[in-house]
């Protein structure tokens, strides 16, 4: 009985805090995405040859964890199969956050675009029963900086 109580308490805590954190995170993501829209990050492999740019490697990474409620939902989903929306939003948040951090780094360097963007996802820790505990998403690319804006060539 006590165990059930603890389980339900964790579930409610997870739901409450998790939903709140997710909503707040999405608001901040959307706001920053709007601000950084002027700085394109593209996956093209070859940069333009003219004009001559300075360049620097920019990296953004995020480690994010799923909450108790979502993990429970995902475990239920494992019984029936289908889309695991709980994890989809987790990965979406991590990916967008990483790409924003990469862009922010590029912005501070005075870059005008980021080339050859690559993403890398890794599961950092496993929860009970091999479920996803937390994931890391890394975004990296080459920032192209106009020569007059750059003083160091890293």
């Amino acid at each position: 009985m006590i165990e059930l109580g603890i389980f339900l308490a964790l579930l409610t805590l997870g739901y409450g805090f998790g939903q709140y954190a997710e909503r707040r995170h999405y608001r901040s993501i959307i706001e920053r995405e709007k601000r950084l829209n002027a700085l394109p990050a593209i996956a093209a492999r070859f940069p333009p040859t003219e004009p001559q740019h300075h360049q620097a490697l920019v990296i953004g990474s995020t480690v994010i964890s799923v909450d108790y409620f979502k993990r429970f939902l995902a475990a239920l989903r494992n019984l029936f199969g289908g889309r695991v929306t709980a994890y989809e939003s987790l990965l979406d948040r991590a990916r967008r956050e990483s790409s924003l951090r990469m862009k922010q780094q590029a912005e501070t360097l005075g870059a005008e675009m980021v080339f050859n963007v690559k993403y890398e996802t890794a599961s950092i820790s496993k929860g009970r029963g091999n479920t996803i505990g937390s994931i890391e998403v890394l975004a990296y690319g080459t920032a192209l900086i106009r020569p007059q804006a750059a003083d160091t060539d890293r």
Binding site: G14, F17, S61, I64, S65, K70, R71, S134, E136
Partner: peptide, 23 residues
Amino acid sequence: MAGLKNIFGGELKGYTELLQESR
């Protein structure tokens, strides 16, 4: 801290920093 975050969800800032250092 990460164990607590596993209940509430959200970013694990400690791990993000750790992985950045290691990178």
